[in-house]
């Protein structure tokens, strides 16, 4: 199998998010970024498939802050190739990003073969349009399924069985031929951890290929009027004081409602 995984950096929402002066985007100065969670799962799923069925894993990312470290981490986890696309990405939005990757996969020596599987994160948290994966599938003319939580390959290496999540723990199994594009929500196993020392040593031995790509033209995305923070619903009554005091108050509340001693 030739597996491609597209990796994207997103703001780390554990940090406070600050809206920039233009009111339309986040203040880049205040931003801490990390690899999008579902992408980490997409990478894990790719490596699990490679371990089972052989083949190669290629990670592809658009240039972004701290992306190099992510690409080397992917090497350390078992990826075979890493590609960084560079270019002027100012204001680029999902439809254009999909076009950019589509042109990457359409150029002469990189067309998707009958063993190719492209994995993306199911959905990132940071863009309004979202869903680069289905756009990409449309452009490449291959089947797509999103919210994937498991992938199996059939014996003849031609078809994949894909698990898709619905709701309430209900899932569905679908069969589709390769090549295909999938949006991964969660890998079959938790993403593996690699020690920093291993990433460091990989940095010396591996090479990230860089490729300059012209931005696709003329696809206007949505225009944002303004960004704002939701009004705190402020519903909770906050219990003040040291943990002991707050705990004592909780116990009182539970006792009043007959929720203790059950």
């Amino acid at each position: 199998m030739d597996i491609f995984v597209l990796l994207k950096m997103v703001p780390d929402v554990v940090e406070e998010l600050v809206i920039g002066e233009n009111g339309k985007s986040l203040d880049p100065q205040m931003l801490r970024v990390k690899l999008s969670d579902p992408d980490e799962h997409a990478l894990e799923q790719a490596i699990l498939l490679k371990e089972k069925h052989k083949g190669t894993v290629t990670v592809v990312a658009m240039e972004a802050p701290e992306v190099d470290e992510i690409l080397f981490t992917a090497f350390a986890k078992g990826a075979d190739n890493a590609v960084k696309l560079t270019g002027d990405w100012t204001g680029i939005q999902a439809p254009s990003i999909a076009r950019l990757f589509a042109s990457y996969f359409s150029s002469a020596n990189r067309q998707l073969g009958s063993q190719a599987l492209v994995l993306l994160g199911s959905q990132a948290i940071d863009d309004l349009e979202g869903e680069v994966a289905p756009y990409l599938a449309e452009l490449l003319g291959v089947p797509y399924i999103g919210v994937v939580t498991g992938i199996r390959l059939d014996e003849e290496n031609k078809k994949i069985m894909v698990m898709k999540e619905f709701a309430g723990g209900l899932r569905g199994e679908f069969e589709l031929p390769l090549p295909a594009v999938l949006g991964v929500q969660a890998a079959e196993k938790p993403p593996r951890y690699v020690p920093v020392a291993k990433v460091r040593s990989v940095m010396k031995s591996s090479h990230v290929e860089t490729l300059e790509v012209p931005p696709p033209e003329g696809i206007a995305g949505l225009s944002i009027d303004r960004l704002f923070t939701p009004e705190a619903a402020g519903k909770a009554e906050m219990l003040e004081g040291a943990p002991e005091e707050a705990s004592a108050r909780i116990v009182e509340i539970l006792a009043e409602r007959g929720l203790l001693g059950r």
Binding site: L17, I125, F228, P230
Partner: peptide, 8 residues
């Protein structure tokens, strides 16, 4: 956006 931390 951002898991509900920001609205647009």
């Amino acid at each position: 956006l951002f898991g509900g931390k920001i609205l647009s």
